[in-house]
Amino acid sequence: MTALSRRAPAEDGIATPEFEAAHERQKRWRGFLMALPAYAYLLLFFAVPLGIVVVYSFGTRTRFGTTELSGWNLESYEKLGRDLVQQVLFRSIWLALLTTVICLVIAYPFAYYMATRSARVRNLMLVFVMIPFWTNFLVRNYAWYVILGTDGPFSRVAEFLGFGPTRLLFTQSAVVMGLVYGFLPFMILPLYAAIERIDGRLLEASRDLGATGYQSFRRVLLPLSMPGVIAGSILVFIPSLGAYVTPDILGGAKTTLLGSYIVTQFLSARDFPFGAALSTVLMALMLAATIVYFRRGGRTL
């Protein structure tokens, strides 16, 4: 097709079907060109490495810690049935769920409060929610390390109150506290966006029809803010499940989670196929969680 034929068929200013078809093609091509850099980047640095990980998960670890890719097998996946692995897996899911629920309970009233303020107060509060992001994530986790440590302020206050020396560091509670702290903004923001969209008069109508404050929340506010609840839960659950930095710093050796366990496989145990299998399973879990949530919500976010 020549450039001329692509543009020409508009005779006397009338858009012929050929002209319209050519015009459509041109529009699509232009759209593709605009998306190309992002496509290329994702293909090169996401899809290809992802493929490599999946391929490795079917390989075999040699005695020297290298990986033999010929002779595909499911040995690494069989290792997933081991008690230790199961423990790590369930502990990770449990802590991620706990983190999600705590974030939801803390974030919802806050998001509601924020959504019902004046525009100025609202924007100020949004800035406050974002401020922690200005500090490096690793630094913030080490701050928690200090706070929760034996000599930290938390322990001192507990001691002063008569609970005796309390060390939270290297417990599951410490990990959950750290995760909640780290991911709370990801719960607040979608909840805020969802609640802010709800017409305040619906709550007035509910009260007018005889509903108590709690009934209005349960029957009107909560169902209408469900898209925000779902989005926030996904945004907290998924990174919590694969979290590495926080559990590693605050959890210590006793509370190994999936993220740290995978790192160990790659770096210390040099069992690349098993690490790859764990990563693949983790991704499958996240995908499943996302799909289940979407289905239950039944709407776009």
């Binding site: 017409d199 008069r201 007035e204 109508a205 509910s206 007018d208 029809l209 509903a211 029957r219």
Partner: peptide, 30 residues
């Protein structure tokens, strides 16, 4: 919710997530 009055709101303020029947029965359910 304690007053013997009800309101027809400007632009209606119907509950978008409920059916017509559930909208109308809302007051009784509460």
């Amino acid at each position: 919710n304690k007053r013997p009055v009800n309101t027809v709101f400007q632009n209606y303020a119907l509950f978008p997530h409920l059916t017509v029947r559930d909208n109308v029965s809302f007051g009784l359910r509460m």
